[in-house]
Design a protein around this nucleic acid. Structure first.
Length: 586
DNA sequence: GCCGTTTTCGGCCCGACTGTTTTCAGTCG
């Protein structure tokens, strides 16, 4: 049983306990344990003894799951709450207490029975329930299964930026910032959170609800506004209004994550303060307030540094082992080049020159052009002849741009070479040796067994002329699961062969993800943060990749495209010998 | 259920909004 399955059982137990009216603290304990297990970067069995928030009882459940694959506790809970009532938890506005009352007071045990009872107007007979609750239940059941769950960051990000830009233009808006999981650069997003700085929330709110795309208003008060937003597809938007003097505490609160907020509030409490989005209040004397116009103010009161948003996961940035490393983490401004991009030679949308100029404008000192190899016909893979042609154009362009820029600008002649189903590569060794840089990636036969695909990619990782394994797991958020690859085996192979693993920055991919990145770094494996850009705009995705690396506490020095060119070059020549085209100094 | 240089018992983060009431529980984030 893997970590995800165990986490699922724990959160299931929490759901049952919640419906049964168990202590909220017990429910919370299971829920937190589930999250802890889900986030682990190694099998739970290895670290079960010292898992924070996992004590005797929950440990026993996990041990039982590990040995028998089942949980007696879960089974007995399933008997106590028969049917499929748990599914109602997914209905917005329906929570555990409502489900509990439907079960105990009306004897309903299935979603179908609940629907029938709502249609027969029986639910409104319960004390405190009216027609609106009934309507909400019916609407929720109707929408079940059709509802989209979390959406890939790639799809939400531009939408959120456009929306916040519109809000900024509304009179009375002093500032507006996207918060929540988007600001934390999480790979999937549940809703769009926006913190608005204003002294006139009512007027601003009135203007926001008239924006194009605003559908159903879900909640609207003095300080908050929620609505369904729909341009191409629907997503919930939550907006909070904060006065300038509390915008810092408001933005901290609205950025999260939830565990991070709880940690900060507990810390405040230990110092006799009550912390909320309104700022600090001394518990002994509520009139004694500390206002926080900036986020840094909140952290300063607690004697903490303000972690960048992507690091705000529970208390992790403040743990001693991370705290020391934090100033050495890779930053966007450390990136000196991009080692994976496409041009219109294959399936890119922009020319070689446009891509190179855009990279130069970003301040890069080197890039690698890595169009697809010949067998990938759907992506216009390059024949040997086209590859050679491109190489010549690259040489001329490099010279011209370096001259124009008045500084060296290196364009590496690379390729993204297909790893064929048997693990061999799509160009002959002589061709690979002549290239400056080879990214090897899987683009076909995703469905191979774990053994097959692991052997396939490991074989490529051991090839002397492969420099980078591109998007190693192949996962594409919202579209495709990872290959069945044994990533740990790949990391072990990379440790041996010295090949670099890619962190593909495209927000649909973010592959490798943080747990694997951390594991790779721990084993001394190098990482390349690349955009895999298919047009000029794609180069901007580097931001997502760097944030993802930071979540894994990847250090600057682990990332080969933070190195200066001589160091990178000697790495690239490690198995190829001297280059016939390029001296050591550039 | 978990946890402890304030505690092995007694706490456990906090507030906005809705619906149905008339002071609050439930839900959500």
């Amino acid at each position: 049983m893997d970590n995800l399955e165990i986490a699922w059982v724990l959160s299931r137990i929490a759901d049952y306990y919640e419906i049964l009216g168990e202590s909220a603290f017990r429910v919370n304990a299971y829920r937190r344990a589930a999250e802890t297990v889900e986030r682990l970067d190694r099998p739970v069995a290895e670290v079960l003894e010292d898992l924070p928030g996992v004590g005797k009882s929950i440990r026993a459940v996990i041990e039982e799951l590990l040995t028998t694959g089942e949980s007696q506790l879960l089974r007995s809970l399933e008997e106590r709450v028969p049917g499929d009532l748990l599914r109602l938890l997914d209905v917005p506005g329906i929570g555990p207490r409502t489900i509990y009352r439907l079960y105990t007071e009306l004897g309903l045990t299935t979603v179908e029975e609940v629907r029938a009872a709502a249609e027969a107007k029986k639910i409104r007979t319960l004390k405190g329930f009216g027609g609106k609750v009934e309507a909400r239940i019916l609407e929720g059941i109707r929408a079940m299964g059709k509802r989209r769950e979390r959406v890939p960051l790639a799809e939400v990000y531009p939408l959120a930026q456009a929306l916040v830009a519109q809000i900024r233009r509304i009179p009375g808006v002093l500032d507006a910032v996207v918060g929540g999981s988007i600001r934390r650069v999480e790979p999937t997003i549940g809703d769009i959170d926006i913190a608005v700085k204003t002294t006139t929330p009512e007027e601003v709110s009135e203007r926001i609800v008239r924006l194009r795309g605003v559908r159903e208003i879900l909640a609207r008060g003095e300080d908050a506004l929620s609505f369904q937003y729909e341009l191409l597809w629907p997503i919930r938007v939550d907006i909070r209004f904060f006065a300038p003097e509390i915008f810092g505490s408001g933005l901290v609160y609205f950025t999260g994550d939830k565990e991070h907020n709880i940690y900060l509030r507990r810390l405040a409490k230990g110092r006799g303060y009550h912390l909320s989005e309104w700022g600090f209040e001394r518990e002994a004397d509520p009139t004694d307030r500390i206002l926080c116009p900036e986020e840094e103010d909140v952290y300063r009161v607690l004697d903490l540094f303000a972690p960048s948003p992507e690091l705000r996961i529970g208390d992790t940035p403040f743990r001693p082992e991370n705290r020391e490393r934090i100033s050495h983490l890779v930053r966007l401004e450390d990136i000196r080049g991009d080692l994976h991009m496409h041009t219109d030679y294959s399936d890119g949308g922009d020319t070689l020159e446009a891509m190179a100029r855009a990279a130069l404008a970003r301040g890069y000192t080197y890039i690698a052009i890595t169009d697809h190899s010949r067998s990938l016909k759907v992506a216009g893979g390059l024949s040997l002849e086209r590859l050679r042609e491109q190489g010549e154009e690259i040489r001329r362009l490099e010279e011209r741009l370096s001259e124009e820029a008045g500084r060296p600008f290196v364009i590496l002649r690379g390729a993204e070479v297909d790893i064929l189903p048997d693990g061999s590569l799509d160009y002959e060794d002589e061709v690979l040796r002549e290239l400056d840089l080879v990214v090897a990636s899987v683009h076909t036969h995703f469905q191979q067994s774990r053994e097959e695909i692991t052997a396939r990619i490991v074989r490529a990782a051991r090839h002397p002329f492969v420099d980078i394994i591109g998007h190693p797991t192949g996962r594409v958020y919202g579209r495709r699961d990872a290959y069945a690859l044994d990533v740990e085996a790949l990391i072990a192979a990379a440790q041996e062969s010295g090949v670099t693993l890619e962190l593909n920055s495209h927000p649909y991919r973010l592959d490798l993800g943080p747990p694997h990145l951390a594991l790779a770094q721990e084993h001394g494996v190098r990482i390349a943060i690349n955009t895999d850009a298919h047009n000029v705009e794609g180069l901007e995705d580097m931001f997502f990749g760097v944030a993802t690396a930071r979540k894994a506490y990847v250090l600057r020095d682990t990332v080969i495209n933070t190195w200066d060119f001589p160091r990178l070059w000697s790495y690239l020549r490690r198995n190829r010998g001297p280059s016939p085209y390029r001296g050591r100094q550039v």
